[in-house]
Nucleic acid binder design. Structure first.
Lengths: 118, 118
DNA sequence: AGGACATGTCACCGTATGGTGACATGCCGA
DNA sequence: TCGGCATGTCACCATACGGTGACATGTCCT
């Protein structure tokens, strides 16, 4: 298994990876740049290997693309999969906020059968 | 560590948990109902204990609330944290889609310094 | 009371995951 | 050519996580 959406969700689950995306959203960076950002004890200090594994996860999820330039690797963020996941799943639930709120109201009122349930 | 947003992301990372939220979005269910849904080999067949652990993760993330009714437990979805996370993070990146696309165009064109980088 | 049922808890297991250090590759410049 | 730097890869470790079976609690019904 593990569809593309799955890879995106898994990739987004880690705060370090989300921070990487935040950085890359401001500007493309080389792997070394990213390592500096996280190695300076900013986020607890992760080594190069760790950062690269995170970037690799993001890359396999399609969230990060890169381009080789000599011995450097420029990493780019690709927000399209995020938007796709948001469209296909998140907004579905957010759209149900009203209904959800209704359920929660039933919850607060302690109804026996919270739905019409017919 | 592990802020509320973190818990939400972690909770959303698992496809089974997202499926649980999908079910609960349609209608509140008891734990037993959920177990039946996943135990009938529908999603590979997860036992009661496994389902309850998932529901517990969702509950600790604030995505599922519940109400006791006798020996039953009615589980309710709460989409508010999803919306919050979406607002604070996802939409930020989706908003940058244009800029992101610009970067990617630079990538495709093989520019040396993809940004103005000044 | 007593049994059946729904739920909750516990110890445990295999694997995935985050993280590391050591080493290999490859490109640039002297 | 040769050294140095940025990157990539490998083996390895500790822990978190998904999942299970066995057992405990509590509630409903007879």
């Amino acid at each position: 298994m593990s569809s593309e959406a799955d890879l995106v969700w898994k990739a987004l689950a880690d705060p370090t990876r989300r921070a990487i995306l935040d950085l890359l959203a401001k500007a493309p960076l080389t792997t070394g740049d990213l390592c500096e950002h996280f190695g300076l004890a900013r986020h607890g200090g992760i080594g190069r290997t760790g950062v690269m594994k995170h970037v690799d996860v993001l890359h396999r999820a399609g969230l990060v693309l890169f381009r080789r330039e000599g011995r450097q690797r420029w990493n780019y963020v690709n927000a399209v999969p995020i938007q796709r996941v948001c469209d296909r799943w998140v907004s579905g639930h957010v759209r149900d906020l009203a209904r959800s709120a209704n359920h929660l109201k039933d919850l607060a009122e302690g109804k026996r059968r919270p739905l019409g349930s017919g």
